[in-house]
Write a protein that binds this DNA or RNA. Sequence first.
DNA 1: TGTCTCTGTGTTAACGTAAACATAAGCATA
DNA 2: TATGCTTATGTTTACGTTAACACAGAGACA
Lengths: 338, 338
Amino acid sequence: MKIKKNARPTMVDVAHRAGVSQMTVSRAISGKGYVSEDVKLKVEAAAQEIGYVQNRLAYGLRSENTHLIAVVLPSLANSVFTDVLTGITDAVTIHGFRPVFGVTEYSQESEEKLVQDLLSWRPYGIVLAGIEHSEATRKAIISSGIRVAEIMDVESTPISIAFGLSHKDAGKKTAEYMLSKGHRRFIYVGSQGGRDLRALKRFEGFIEALNEAEATLISTEISTLPSSLAGGLSVTEKILQSSDKPDAIYYANDDLAAGGLMYCISNGIRTPEDIALAGFNGLPFLDAFPIQLTTVRTPRYEMGWKAGNYLVDPSLASYPEGESCIDVGFELIKGDTC
Amino acid sequence: MKIKKNARPTMVDVAHRAGVSQMTVSRAISGKGYVSEDVKLKVEAAAQEIGYVQNRLAYGLRSENTHLIAVVLPSLANSVFTDVLTGITDAVTIHGFRPVFGVTEYSQESEEKLVQDLLSWRPYGIVLAGIEHSEATRKAIISSGIRVAEIMDVESTPISIAFGLSHKDAGKKTAEYMLSKGHRRFIYVGSQGGRDLRALKRFEGFIEALNEAEATLISTEISTLPSSLAGGLSVTEKILQSSDKPDAIYYANDDLAAGGLMYCISNGIRTPEDIALAGFNGLPFLDAFPIQLTTVRTPRYEMGWKAGNYLVDPSLASYPEGESCIDVGFELIKGDTC
DNA sequence: TGTCTCTGTGTTAACGTAAACATAAGCATA
DNA sequence: TATGCTTATGTTTACGTTAACACAGAGACA
């Protein structure tokens, strides 16, 4: 007779206590296969009594389904990505899956390592934020054979399917609206040292519209720091105190823009008369501002939800045949600042 | 000869290609045991060529160490918890561990299920936000035998060790400061329908100080919704327009308080002359406000970091013998609103 | 009555890895 | 030369689970 100290109970222990075979315990617990009602109750009672907890490692190894969904995000500091993660979590949890995430800090290099590492958990599917990845990352995912969904962006060729929006278009539409309000001289404010590729695409679309209208981009102010209200505030102060003051500022996102707006509110600077402002994301905290910022609202939770649903059960969502980019769209919030 | 279609390469496949045994591959890859330099290179090359990715399920099952750290949080919507999660992630990643999280939405019932589920992954350790748990949760964790760290709070008996702060004390200190500024008539504003136990503790300490000073708590306004700036703004508007206006408002957290402050800024209401305000958390976005909110700054990242470090290597941090609650403290930011 | 289907249960093997043990060569030391 | 230690590698087994197969009894139907 074997005696193990400190060992956690297994199905064999439950089986002994319930007076059945280990396989019957497996069937009773998983609900697969035939088990009589009284045996099932006996097994459940025995499991309860000895505090049996299933071992998902053994389950996953044998059944070849971990019920894990890997999630790769640039950051947790930005609520944009926690919204997405919440959407994914809600969607996959319903189907008995669990998200397991990692953070890249906007670096393709760390994304590569992270994906390798997450794949070693043999996830059922993987969600990548963004659509640009290193060749090694793409190769690793493709050869793993698991389902992939890319989110946030649709402006490139996805590995398999993408749920996102056109950032270039969002930038362009924002510029067109600002131009329509008569603004002609712009400054662009970015962050993350330009590593946020989606922000760059918005900027690209923005520039395109400026060029078409023959308007002027005076300069760009790109900090290497992460976005923050305080950062947006200080750069706005600097811009407004310079000799070559613009008509309007386009910020890479709402954190920066809200900082700018806060500067204006605090200093009695009228918007859009003295300066026009626009951001991106449509973050909910903007609702508390006395002045509605011009911005673009994005369906973040929805992108996560859709990607999660697609991964755990592609049949749930019937997408156009052959369509690999699902554009979830965006909404231009015209606001009071342009 | 076996032929498997679509199967992902294993150590056996690498072994064949490198002309060695599977065990040698295991040793070459894990770095444990003796492997000659040229064999190691051969194995690494073979692994690279066939795209070998380690199977963490098999690794964890056999080695009895998943290198997973389970993390239980109330929510991802509040940046307080993403700060904590980032601290945990940073700490454990260095030691080759990976966080795997779940969200309770402030419900002990869902915490119970979640913990059960996370334990089935056989994590090396678990972090729980908060120190109050159902008996079943405590029992499940204790009988699992894994390391536990509880964070955010120190005002109860932890299962093993807690890294947190005294919320009651924070509430009391805030009240004492407000009282010292001459405020006598208070309203408390909460959210989450009172399910945030730490907010309740702050309120308790707050009340205690009011009672000692024989000051008045006019009423409490507790919404069932999650905290938001917009929610804080609207309740503040309601309070300031009522006939029984208080001297001061104590908010459960900075989101609500910032909404209140925003209302004051937008409507030319002077603070603290017309109304005094105080919040809790010390969120960074407050730095962009023209008026510094009175609040309490908490070391969120640090709590996560310490808990993570403790779990993966308790010897790293030598804590006072027998001390089960590590108080990380807090800082009262006096600000301009009291 | 034979046999077919459905239900319930048990036995054996396998998932991919690392621990434990075995073996053997090389080399220094007694 | 015998002994013991270090290095390098292989073989066997076990981790806890589920898939696949086997089998037997009950009931239905020809």
